[in-house]
C-alpha cells in the first residue's frame, strides 16, 4: 500500500452522506435480489445450490456506514434542510466574499444562520466583513430548505414544500427496506428451523432432507 496523496480534496458532509446512503441502498437492493432468487429457486423445487455468500459486505463497512449516516443526518446537523442545488448555489454566492476554502467548506457543513455561529467559523469576522455579516447569513438561509431551522432541524410542518415530501418519500422507502430486511430475517429463520418432519430436533441439519 502506498499513499499517493494524503489530502487530494475535501468533501462536504452532505456529499459523504449522499455517498453513504447510495452505498446503503445499493446494499439493500442486492440483498433483496439475492433473497428473491433464492425464493424462486425454492419455489421451482431446485435443490439448494452451494450457497455462495451473497457478496459478504464486511462488518466494518456496515458499521461505519450506519454510524456515519446516523451522525450526518442527526437533527443537529443542517444536512436535513440542504439540497444539492442549494449547496451549489451557496458556494457560487459565497464567491462574492473573500473567504478561504476552509471557511467556505465549514459554512457549507455547518450552515450558520446566527452571527455567533459565523464568528466561530470565519476568522476576524468583524475586521474583514464588518457589516456584510448579515448578507452572508442571509445567503446561507436562502439556500436552506424553507421552514427548517438549521440549528436543530425541527421541521415546522406548516410548510409542506415539495422537497419535504420527496424527503419523506425517501425516508419511508428506507423504512420499507428495513421492514423487508426484518421479513428476510424471519423467512431465513423459517427455512432453517423448519424441521417438523423426520429430522425433528436436528436443527439446521440440511442434509437430513437429502437422505
Amino acid at each position: 500500500m502506498e499513499v499517493l496523496n494524503q489530502r487530494a480534496a475535501l468533501l462536504s458532509n452532505y456529499e459523504v452522506l449522499t455517498l453513504l446512503k447510495e452505498l446503503e441502498s445499493d446494499h439493500l437492493a442486492r440483498t433483496k435480489t439475492a433473497i428473491r432468487i433464492k425464493k424462486e429457486e425454492e419455489a421451482a423445487g431446485l435443490p439448494p445450490k452451494h450457497q455462495a455468500p451473497p457478496d459478504d459486505v464486511c462488518e466494518n463497512l456496515r458499521t461505519v456506514e450506519v454510524e456515519a449516516i446516523q451522525y450526518l443526518s442527526a437533527d443537529f446537523q443542517p444536512t436535513g434542510s440542504q439540497t444539492p442545488e442549494g449547496i451549489t448555489q451557496l458556494t457560487r454566492n459565497l464567491a462574492r466574499w473573500d473567504l478561504t476554502k476552509a471557511e467556505k467548506l465549514q459554512i457549507v457543513n455547518l450552515a450558520p444562520t446566527e452571527p455567533v455561529e459565523l464568528y466561530v467559523v470565519v476568522e476576524e469576522l468583524e475586521d474583514r466583513f464588518g457589516n456584510q455579516m448579515d448578507d452572508i447569513l442571509n445567503t446561507v438561509k436562502e439556500t436552506l430548505r424553507e421552514a427548517a431551522p438549521a440549528v436543530n432541524g425541527t421541521s415546522n410542518g406548516a410548510e409542506p414544500s415539495q422537497a419535504m415530501q420527496v424527503d419523506a418519500a425517501v425516508y419511508s422507502e428506507y423504512q420499507d427496506d428495513y421492514q423487508d430486511q426484518d421479513q428476510w430475517d424471519y423467512n431465513a429463520n423459517e427455512v432453517v428451523f423448519d424441521d417438523t418432519g423426520e429430522g425433528a430436533g436436528i436443527e439446521g441439519d440440511l442434509d437430513v432432507d437429502d437422505d
Binding site: 500500500m1 502506498e2 499513499v3 499517493l4 496523496n5 494524503q6 489530502r7 487530494a8 480534496a9 475535501l10 468533501l11 462536504s12 458532509n13 456529499e15 459523504v16 457543513n109
Partner: peptide, 10 residues
C-alpha cells in the same frame, strides 16, 4: 471533516 485520499494498492 472528510477528505479524499489517493491510495495505490494491490
Amino acid at each position: 471533516m472528510f477528505q479524499l485520499s489517493i491510495i495505490k494498492d494491490t
